[in-house]
Structures are given as C-alpha cells and as structure tokens.
Design a protein around this nucleic acid. Structure first.
Lengths: 345, 345
DNA sequence: TTGTATGCGTTATCAC
DNA sequence: GTGATAACGCATACAA
C-alpha cells in the first residue's frame, strides 16, 4: 500500500466509490440511511484504502472532541493516582481520551487549566483535589466553576462545592471515619490522638468533627495536645507524631486523616524506638497501595477507587449524551484491618 | 460582557476593527508585518471582546495540536508516575498539553493507543515501559514503532529499541547497578542474592549480567538459589524473598532490580521474623517516593526523574521546531544510602 | 436514497 | 501593508 494513510480523505473515498462525500459521511457515521448496496461498496473502499476520519476536522464541525479533561492536584498522593489510573482506562474503554493537567494545588493553575482545556474543547472536566476541598473557598473560585459548569459537565471527586450544574461522586468519608474510630475504640483504646492535614479542607474538618463527637459520645478524654494539623505529606505526619510523642502522656492510638500522614507517623514512632502497634497504634484513611505492604500493615479505610473513577466518567459521558445524570453519588468505604492497630486486652 | 466568548471568531474581530480576517490573523500569529496603527487597533478589539483563537480550527490547518501523547505502562509503578508528573508539568510550561494513555503493559493496547493518538494528531509520543524494554521484541512491534517514527517524534524513556528515527533518554542503569553492588560489597557482604522482575526485559537482563560479572570479579560465590526472577510487583518481591529464605544458607544481602520488589522482599523478611538490615540487608533501584519512609529506609539508586522527563519533552519539542536533537541521552543515577543495608564488621 | 452546497475557524497564498 | 480567497476534512440542511 503505497498511499499515505494520512492523506486519504472523505473526498478520495467518494471518488473511488463513485458517490458523493455526503454518502461516504453517512456510511461512516451510520446515522442516516444508505442503500445497502452503496453502503457495502463504500465500506469496501474505506477498508481497502485504510481510510480513517480526521478527528480534528470532525471536532471542528461537531464541537465535540471525545476528550475529558482531568484536573488533578498532584500525582504525589497515591489516592489521586489510583483515580487517574482507573479513570483513564475506563474512559478510553468508553471511547474517550484523557487530557491530564496537574495543578500542583494552585488555584491559579486550576483556572489556567480550565481555560486551556476548554480551548482544547474537552467535552467535560473531572476535578480531583484543589479548590473543591475548601470549606470556605473565595467567591471567585466558585464563580469560575459555576461559569464553566454552564457550558460543560464538571464532576468533582470527593469534592463538596454544591452547585446545581456540578456533579459529585464521593466517598461517605464521615461515615467511614466513624467506622475507623469505632473500631479503634472497640480495640480497647481510651487515649486517642489525631493527625490531620491542612485545616479548612473538608477531608480534614469533617473528620475532626466526627472525632470530637465520637470521643464525647464515649465519654473519652479529649487531649488537645494530641490533635495536630499539618499538611497532607509524609513529613507532616512525622512532625505531628513527634509533637504528640513530646507530650507528657502519650496516646495508645493515633488516627490519621489519610494514609500518607499515617506512614509519616509510623516512621517517626519507629525512629524514636517505639514499636507500632505494640507501643502505639496508628490508623490511616484511603488504603493507598503501599499501606498493605508497610511494616506493620496499615489498618485503614479503603476508598472504592474503581467506582469513584468510573462513576465520574459515566456522569460526564451520560451528560454529553443527554441522558439523565444523578447529580450526587455517595459511595461507602470499608474498614481494612491489618496490623497497625493493637487490640488492648 | 454579554457576548459569549465561545462564539467570537476572527470574523467578528475583523468586522469590529474594520479590517480583513487576514489582518487579524497576522496580528495573532505575529509572523507577518502589520502597520503599528492597525495592529494596535486590532489588539484592542481582541482584548475588548476577549477573543481567543479556536485551537481545533488552527490544528486542522496546521496539522499541529501542541499535544504530546504519553504512553505509559501503568500508574501502579511509582517510577512511571514520577516521570508522568514531571513530564506533564514541564510540557505544559512549554505550552504543550499531555494526553495520557495507560497500556496496562499490553502490546495490543500500545498499538491501539499509537493509532488513536495519531488520529488525535498528537505532535509526538513519549513511551514509558512496555515493548521498549523487551530484549527480543517481536519484529512487528519494532516495525510498528519504525512506521510511526517516520511521521512523528517518539522518545523512549529508559527504552532500548535502537532505530535511527527514535529518540532515547535513559538512566545508565548498568553503571548505577554496578555502584549498588560495589557499595554492598564494600559493606562487607560476601553472600549476596538477587531478586528481579521479568526475564527478557532490559532492566532485568542488564542487571543480571552486571551482577554475575561483579561477583566474579570479586571472587565471590554465585549461588543460583539466591537468584530469583518474577514480576515487577510487590507480591513478587515477597515470593522471591520467601524462596531465598527457604535455602539452607541465606545470603547476608539481597539486591532487587527495583524498589517495588525490595519493598515486597523486606515485607516478607519481616513477616518471617527477620530484621532488615540486621538479619538480612535489602537494596533496591529507582528510589520511589515511599522508599525514603519505609522502615528501614531503603538503600537504593535514585533515578533522575526530573531530567528524564524534561529531556524527553525537550526532544519532542525540539524535533517539532526543527532544531537539532541528540538521538540518545544518557543520565547518571546516584546511590542513596539509607538503613536497609548493614555494614558487616 | 443520494448529491450539492455550506459552515466550522483558522492560516497562508496571491494579488493589489 | 492589506484584502479576497482557497484550503484543511468533516457533517448536515436542503434539494432533488
């Protein structure tokens, strides 16, 4: 085949088949009726020359690119990675391509990417991390999202911005974190600390509230020296644990609002010669891939990555296709018991 | 501003400015000369109406999309993730957008993605994992790469397929692994095992060869029961360590051809009640993010992710711009000494 | 059922 | 220095 595939157009096929380009187009899209005889003739020519429609030209006409923009805070947090991984594979399976933009947790970068990807005519956005986690985001951040959501479907994964045009798929983090606390208490722990990431984010504030409520319900001591906030990075988990271990009395268990923090916390405890879980128990949230293999295995909450990702993609595609889309979907998460939380006899 | 930005075209601007679309286009591209007076007039109108050129239309004309296709084997191996992360951020900084395709290490998927992304008119490919690591790939896998590389720049990250049109950026893995072995030996280890991923891949075979040579050079015992191959996943590292620990005499140190395996190996040693590094030392390769925080911290080789990623992107962009591009770039990697390898007195 | 003609929004060629 | 117009490749409204 000496013909360069790149340069075969609908015109070439039409000429070879002795029909008009309209007919060829009809055959390709399959939307309109074409007489069987001509359809087969055209199909054969298409096959013979290996013709493939030019997706750019099609996008120019249709205003649709079969592309989804994935705006993710970073690829350093394994939770985000799992979502990206599953979302890409699933989306492509549904005939969509993923454009990825890493915002490095900068709101300006989110804005730039929203604009850039809109210019690239993505058919929808998936938002992962960033402003959607803010408890009190600046008004303009919300306004911007609203503006875009008028034109394109936007899905937040684990986000909380509530606006009529925005879709949400999220883990029931409150319920899941309550499970984690209840389990810890059921193991006999009476002195429990809490390590969190940034204040002012939903994944943090929600869990802090649940934590306080649960301890009160159980008439347990709330020691503010054992409640340390930082960032959602390993080093911060270590730092927070260090602070907790400096207090006069140390807790028997420390809950972390995510696994990354828990790993930092375990690392620090270990450095100080403490054994997890014998000297101090540590629990996490997310069940990132390494948590299973850490020593000791981390007891944590497993978020349902696969469904979070797939539902996010489905919402976009269904919206595009004009199907009904549930605005908010909430998913349960399971407790994963490993070795990092000791049962106190 | 009541006008919908989406629908402003070059025609609107031309009309408002009282010039032709050609002039507006000249102002936008900046390639041809326009009288200062008219240029300023047009620029003002553009600003006033917030006009932005339609990138799809431009792509249809130019055959360029300012998009790079990133074909990655999986987002489960942290090494790949680091590259993706850096590549996306850097590429966008250079005004390119990243399309990501996860091949799940299936060659057919690589083929599909090559074709799909070419139809989407990416301006180049970055290849991460997959067939480019095969020591003896099927001929058709090579032919396909050759075919695509005639039309588009393709960069392999740590790949070895040698073809005149393909670019390569890679860590000098042989040299780096030699460093790792030399260090292990310098710590006094005389009985050393090796855990690898799949046979038939360069990152495996090359290291096995280095391993044998180094041991011979040092007149050390080569015990084939201590050389176990599997897959590049954590579980495989555990399994391999299990096999090594079943042998009569156990090595004092085990080298792993990547960190993922090392983590599995350490986990297994630990499960069997052995302390790393006191009972057995474990060393890795890659320095994935968790290796620093693992207990004990993993002694390993740090690949220069940032440069690997940036050089890959640069090669693509320079090729597109018609600049000279070095076909192969080889990067050194450093030994990172942590706690997982014990010094024997 | 099929063909013609037009639009999609650019850039570039060629006149003027 | 500027404008008219073709070209990029497709999809579709309308006409036949």
């Amino acid at each position: 085949m000496s013909i360069d595939k790149d340069h075969i157009t609908i015109y070439d096929i039409a000429r070879k088949a002795g029909v008009s380009i309209a007919t060829v187009s009809r055959v390709i899209t399959g939307k309109s009726c074409v007489k069987d005889e001509t359809r087969i003739k055209v199909e054969n020519i298409i096959k013979k020359y290996g013709y493939e429609p030019n997706l750019i030209a099609r996008a120019l006409h249709d205003k649709l690119t079969n592309t989804i923009g994935l705006l993710v805070q970073s690829l350093t947090n394994p939770f985000f990675i799992e979502i990206c991984n599953e979302a890409e594979i699933y989306a492509r399976n549904m005939d969509y391509t993923m454009m990825i933009g890493i915002t490095t947790n900068k709101f300006e970068m989110e804005s730039k990417l929203l604009n850039l990807f809109e210019k690239r005519q993505v058919d929808g956005f998936i938002f992962l991390g960033g402003r959607i986690n803010e408890v009190n985001p600046d008004e303009y951040l919300i306004e911007e999202i609203k503006k875009f959501s008028e034109r394109l479907p936007i899905v937040f994964v684990n986000g909380k911005i509530n606006y009529k045009n925005c879709y949400i798929v999220k883990t029931d983090e409150a319920k899941a974190f309550k499970k984690l606390i209840d389990y810890t208490i059921s193991c006999g722990h009476k002195f429990i600390g809490l390590i969190t990431g940034q204040r002012g984010l939903w994944p943090t504030e929600e869990k802090i509230e649940i934590f306080f409520n649960a301890l009160k319900e159980n008439n347990m001591e709330i020691n503010n020296d054992w409640i340390i906030s930082g960032e959602y990075i390993v080093e911060s988990g270590s730092e927070s644990m260090k602070k907790i271990l400096k207090t006069n009395k140390r807790p028997t268990a420390v809950l972390c609002t995510n696994d990354v923090l828990a790993i930092g916390a375990m690392n620090e405890a270990n450095k100080q010669g403490l054994n997890v879980p014998n000297d101090i128990s540590v629990l996490g949230f997310d069940d990132i891939f390494i948590s299973k293999y850490f020593i000791p295995g981390l007891t944590t909450i497993r978020q349902d990555y696969v469904n979070l990702a797939r539902i996010a993609v489905d919402k976009i595609i269904n919206h595009i296709n004009g199907n009904f889309v549930e605005r908010v979907t909430i998913i349960d998460a399971d407790l994963v018991i490993r070795e990092s939380c000791r049962k106190i006899l």
